[in-house]
Nucleic acid binder design. Structure first.
Lengths: 204, 204, 204, 204
DNA sequence: TATGAATGAGATTTCATTCAT
DNA sequence: CATGAATGAAATCTCATTCAT
């Protein structure tokens, strides 16, 4: 057994259980049974139950932040010719964020627990509303600048673009097991709405 | 107002707490402390903790079902001249459903607990996706029939119409306290998107 | 079983164990095993372990306060002829305080735990130094007023009178089991010192 | 000053904590956190928690024994002319014993833990009652032999001499932090009682 | 010497629930 | 209807200790 293996295993199992049943419904026992270790061992690696959650969410913030930064950087560059309408970026948002095992589980967790903790609420809002909408708004503003889109309310457009994605995410990616079938369904339905949107706006 | 019977008081407090902290994070003690009664008294009114949840959700289903039925009936009638584009119906959906204290709390509850229970998951999907989208689809189909909207994919239109509402509901009505300010904000932002949609589609 | 019997039994056992081994060395388990009840039952009667201690010490303060008040009242009256030099009062201090099962156990407890709690420290000082010395000082001041003792430092006299009592109390009444033999020994040795003191001061 | 070896550091910290909170209330963790070392390291230096206590008390016995021996030797010699009434010896008893950081902490520890251990009880009695009283008795017996004091009960005199010292020690040196202010107060009050005693007995 | 990792036993406390009154 | 009293099970966490490295 490589050292530091246990701590990672704990985090992995804990995230799985937390995202399935919610933080308060998962006991230290449950986690340890699956790792498997004795309960006292867990306390060698973490101060308390809460710390597991914190480490998890801190890692999520790092990954989410890095992804958003990457997306914004990609957009700041003159648009890649082959990217058409930023499709590549949206793809990354789907694959490395909404449907990535780790991020998806963290998002479910945030979504469930935001009610009982102001900080989590803030985080949930940031990573599922604020940053994505902000990003999309900048994209549309840039397209308006370049004359690809008629001048108008970029913020409103961002909502029109993002809302269906969000809806399908909630419906297909935030409940039950994250099966391959659901991923596919999400991709299709969200893709359809995006295509519809782009067509209506006369892009292409 | 009839004097609040104990059973009703229990349900009221329980719903408040469940919708704030989530079902497993609320103890019988917590509920009884606020009612206020002794824990043993609660078991005179309910078989067990689960039953409180069940009664609550059953009542919700009744109310939600009744509302949806009412909405569909209103739509089935030749459109009320003064209603324009079903605005009155959407208003009812906002005021008597998404922002009604009881329904809102139930929706939050469903939203949180759906992960740990297949039945709740089914219910959540039904009352927040299936029925609203279905209804909206029928509305648009009817408008197409009457030539008010060009023939097309009513189901896709329904998503375009409903998704922003859903997004704002998630953002403003499903977290933190349901303040008057948040209600207003929701009404404005959602209203703006609806207006935008109607205008684009050439209705009016 | 009469109602409220359990709570008293818990207090009784807890005091016995606390005064023998010290508060932190006694577990809820230890107490419950002897009562005997299940651990969860204890929490029906007390909020937590600390509360047991608090109830105990509060009762002690009441009894100790009442005794001291009684002693002071007795002294304020013109001295009882048969009481000679307040011997009766000292007797009460011995029998109903230092050697009384309840008070003795509480004093041991205070003595042991004062180190870890400022409030207990205050209480210990009050009931074993402040009040007894104060009382004794008043007695001597009164005797000086009446010319039975030559005018002088009543406070210093109080220490001379009380210190041997305190020393023997510490040696015989604050360690090991409070046997009849130790009580006797305390009474004799302390009595001898008191007699010695009175003789030297020329009282009688 | 040689660099403080780990073992010594452990003993130092342990004594500080034990004397403040009592042996059972101090965990290996608490000690190691302050040393600072990992818990497993402690077990390289000591077999178990108990052994720390034992080493501490063994050292105390050595120091206390040495001091008492020194005091007795000093007394056995023809009285030092400048020492008057053994004042120098009493001073040593104060400074190198009751108020010495190490001895004071050990005495507090013994005082607290004597209840849970027969051996400690024996030790406490020996070093705080038996030996000091015995020593004082011999002093007074010697003074009687030399006609400086009238023949009488040396043992009773010893108690009269020592009891106030003991009382002030308990009150000022066995609770809370051992501040300079408390040391001073002890010295004054105890000194006053000693002076008073000597004057009354007509020594000088 | 020191540490990382683990653990059995046990501590305190909470929880949902029962039952006699 | 309501309560007082009790409880088995489990939750979180602490403790002293071990052992391989």
């Amino acid at each position: 057994m490589t050292p530091m293996h246990t701590k990672e295993k704990i985090l992995e199992i804990a995230l799985r259980l937390f995202s399935q049943r919610g933080y308060p419904a998962v006991s230290i026992r449950d986690i340890c049974k699956l790792v498997p270790i004795k309960e006292s061992t867990l306390y060698y690696h973490f101060e308390n139950k809460r710390e597991i959650l914190q480490v998890l969410l801190q890692r999520f913030e790092e990954r989410a932040g890095a992804l958003m930064d990457r997306m914004e950087t990609a957009m700041a560059d003159p648009l890649q010719p082959g990217d058409g309408f930023g499709t590549g970026v949206t793809q990354a948002f789907f694959d490395e964020y909404l449907m990535d095992d780790f991020c998806n589980a963290c998002l479910r967790l945030l979504r469930m627990e935001q009610g009982s903790d102001g900080e989590l609420q803030r985080s949930y809002d940031q990573w599922l509303f604020e940053r994505p909408l902000q990003f999309q708004e900048r994209v549309f503003a840039a397209l308006m600048d370049r004359g690809i889109l008629p001048k108008g309310d970029a913020s409103s457009l961002a909502v029109q673009y993002y809302a269906p994605i969000f809806l399908y995410m909630e419906r297909y990616l935030m409940c039950g097991e994250l099966t391959q079938e659901k991923r596919e369904r999400f991709r299709q339905e969200a893709g359809k709405q995006i295509a519809c949107f782009l067509q209506e706006k006369g892009v292409f």
